[in-house]
Design a protein around this nucleic acid. Structure first.
Lengths: 128, 128
DNA sequence: AATGCAATTGCGAACTATTCGCATTTAAAA
DNA sequence: TTTTAAATGCGAATAGTTCGCAATTGCATT
């Protein structure tokens, strides 16, 4: 309900509702998923809201392959990765970031790494 | 020119030419990138060829965020990951897979991992 | 509480990457 | 060489996302 709201991001009914939806989600959602939860708002508005949230680092946008759309999740600080079931497409969170104690080396030895994304695939307990 | 060709994949001028293009590429290419190299073939044919290559595990299809298209690279066996420069979008290969000696644990403890993708972001030597 | 204005929204049209349908061509098996 | 399933070219269709613009709304200032 009440939560930190970025300075400079105007509060509107649409934005707070979309924020609520993301707060209640336990897996990343697509724009259309969100749209279905708040069908009174225009889909293009959902996209614009998500873009504004992304600009303020409130959400993380990901593109899961196999799917042709983007999904969004609230940026809750400590970053989370997911494993995706190739059969039912369920997303299962990883216990911890596998890169925690790994150092990554590029061919170009001057590359400054700022962030990463990980996609894990396989079969969930129900599907295998 | 002569290289292993999967059993059951019919050899056509279009397919071998697309294969050549991918062989000569040192970074993943989009369908349109490839199309520009072989402009006599229909773009839809390029897509279908890439889909057939993917089915035979000859290419790896990836979706780089920020870009709204997919890119394809030849599957050369030992898998490679890339770091992407957030400024110039150059792709720099990693020296080795960071997951080589890491075990990944999901919340659901029965998840069977079969593969992974990694996306590293940052700034290349030229851009930072 | 009323005013002003920039930011946001709704609506539909536009755009882009990708896929599909179908008639024609072609690889390669017989 | 004949045959036949698979591949291609072409344009149209689709899906996700973005854009333009007029109408609305948040919120700072009176």
């Amino acid at each position: 309900m009440e939560a930190k709201w970025p300075e400079g991001l105007k509060k509107t009914k649409q934005r707070t509702d979309v924020y609520e939806v993301l707060l209640g989600a336990e897996a990343p959602m697509s724009a259309v998923d969100i749209f279905k939860k708040v069908p009174d708002y225009a889909l293009s508005t959902i996209y614009r809201i998500l873009a504004s949230f992304e600009k303020y680092d409130m959400v993380i946008k990901s593109n899961l392959p196999g799917e042709d759309n983007s999904v969004y999740e609230l940026n809750r600080g400590g970053h989370t990765h997911y494993a995706m079931c190739l059969k039912c497409h369920e997303l299962v969170p990883l216990k911890k970031c596998p890169f925690e104690h790994v150092d990554i080396q590029t061919e170009e030895n001057d590359f400054e790494i700022t962030s990463h994304k990980i996609e894990i695939y396989g079969y969930c307990s129900k599907c295998k």
